[in-house]
Simulated assay, not measured.
Amino acid sequence: MEPLSWGQIIGQMFIQFTPVWIALVVLFTASIIYKRKLGLYGKLFDSPIGMIGFGIVMFWVFTAIFSNLIITHDPLVQVSGMKNKVPGTPVPEGTAGFEYYLLGGDNLARDVFSRMVAGSRIVVQIAPFATLFAFMVGITLGLPAGYFGGRLDTFLSFLANLILAFPVILLFYLLVTPEIVATGLPTYMAGVLFLFPIIFLVVLWNSRYFTQPQKRNVFVAITLLLGGWVYLGTAWGADPTGFFNMQSNILIVFVSVVFVNSPTVFRIVRGLALDIQTRDYVAAAQTRGEGPWYIMLWEILPNARGPLIVDFCLRIGYTTILLGTLGFFGLGLEPESPDWGTTINAGRRLLSIFPHPALAPALALMSLVLGLNLLADGLREESLKD
């Protein structure tokens, strides 16, 4: 068979992404129709920059979701004779999967297109959820530090500044090195850090439904049951069903991201709490006799959502870059992992001769971070109109 031209390659890739295009059309159509009922998310569709960023981000999210339908070959399988082949090269007869390597082969004769698509799944699994956990830690500690002040604020701020004193890349490097992993430190850190989402939700329900004990007890019981199940699986690998058990290499990277991002989130939340607690509606809540945690979680936090949502989007972008950096240095994830950083590192050795193995994941990483930045700009623009 003759190699594919670039027009044919682009056309076939467009066809491979059909599930993603369908999902994007459905999502955008429903969102635009009901945008006036969707709060800040709906207002995002009034911002062209925000819509473009949201579209790019959701493209990669849906790519991760439908990755098994999009890939043309197993991203870990090596096909004889396809080492460093250029895009559009036909595979040998009898090879499972599509008839061509759409974006060529890498230095181990694996399909670059399939590895790029499979790599999105790893990024989407780690970056948003690790950032969410970091926000849970930062919010749970930042609110009381800013609201109560005093020795509590001094102590927590000292710990945050101590962690932030280390260069981020160096701290990541130390946390994922085999010597540190062998001590079990990442597991113990997970045992502590992963408790914060449960603590946050329990305090949230208790402060909101303190006067309705039956409803409060139901919410707290559900949180403890489901949260404990997820906690045992993710932190200790003790989920009897195996559904929430996290691979050790992913756990190491996950914990590192949470640990590094939490102090920055803490400082942002603390600063917002110091500012918002001087507002009149906080004084009115205090006059009504509301408890401090109710004021923090239901008066201060909702009014800080704009800056926090924007920072959340930006921080996912930073986390994506950090994951790529770790993969580039061969740390954290397995060497054969299709994550974008590892793939770029594998392809850089022959970059001047065969640029396609490193170029495809590099462009994917760049586009996702660009989409997150544009989304954050759109959210910032709309939040300022409130």
Score class of each variant (00 low, 15 high):
135 F>C: 10
136 M>S: 12
136 M>N: 11
136 M>K: 06
136 M>V: 03
137 V>Q: 04
137 V>W: 01
138 G>C: 03
138 G>L: 02
138 G>N: 03
138 G>Y: 01
138 G>R: 00
139 I>N: 00
140 T>I: 07
140 T>Y: 07
140 T>C: 11
141 L>I: 14
142 G>R: 14
142 G>K: 14
142 G>Y: 00
143 L>F: 09
143 L>N: 07
143 L>V: 12
144 P>W: 06
144 P>G: 11
144 P>N: 11
145 A>I: 10
145 A>M: 11
145 A>P: 12
147 Y>D: 00
148 F>A: 09
148 F>P: 02
149 G>P: 06
150 G>D: 02
150 G>E: 02
151 R>F: 02
151 R>E: 00
152 L>E: 06
154 T>M: 08
154 T>C: 02
154 T>E: 06
156 L>Y: 03
156 L>T: 15
157 S>F: 06
157 S>Q: 04
158 F>T: 14
159 L>P: 03
159 L>G: 09
160 A>I: 10
160 A>W: 00
160 A>Q: 04
161 N>P: 08
162 L>K: 03
162 L>S: 13
164 L>I: 08
164 L>F: 03
164 L>W: 00
165 A>K: 11
165 A>L: 15
166 F>N: 03
167 P>T: 07
168 V>I: 12
168 V>L: 09
168 V>M: 10
168 V>A: 13
168 V>Y: 03
169 I>V: 15
169 I>R: 11
169 I>C: 06
170 L>W: 10
170 L>K: 07
170 L>E: 04
171 L>E: 05
171 L>V: 11
173 Y>I: 13
173 Y>G: 12
173 Y>A: 15
174 L>G: 06
175 L>T: 07
175 L>K: 04
176 V>S: 06
176 V>K: 01
177 T>A: 14
177 T>V: 14
178 P>F: 02
179 E>K: 10
181 V>M: 05
181 V>I: 15
181 V>E: 07
182 A>H: 06
182 A>C: 06
183 T>H: 04
184 G>T: 11
185 L>V: 12
186 P>L: 11
186 P>H: 04
188 Y>E: 08
189 M>W: 00
189 M>Q: 05
190 A>S: 15
191 G>H: 04
193 L>S: 06
195 L>H: 03
195 L>A: 06
196 F>V: 15
196 F>L: 14
197 P>Y: 00
199 I>C: 03
199 I>V: 15
200 F>Q: 12
200 F>V: 09
200 F>L: 13
201 L>M: 13
203 V>R: 15
203 V>C: 09
204 L>K: 07
205 W>E: 03
205 W>Y: 12
206 N>H: 08
207 S>N: 07
207 S>W: 05
207 S>I: 11
207 S>A: 15
208 R>D: 05
210 F>S: 15
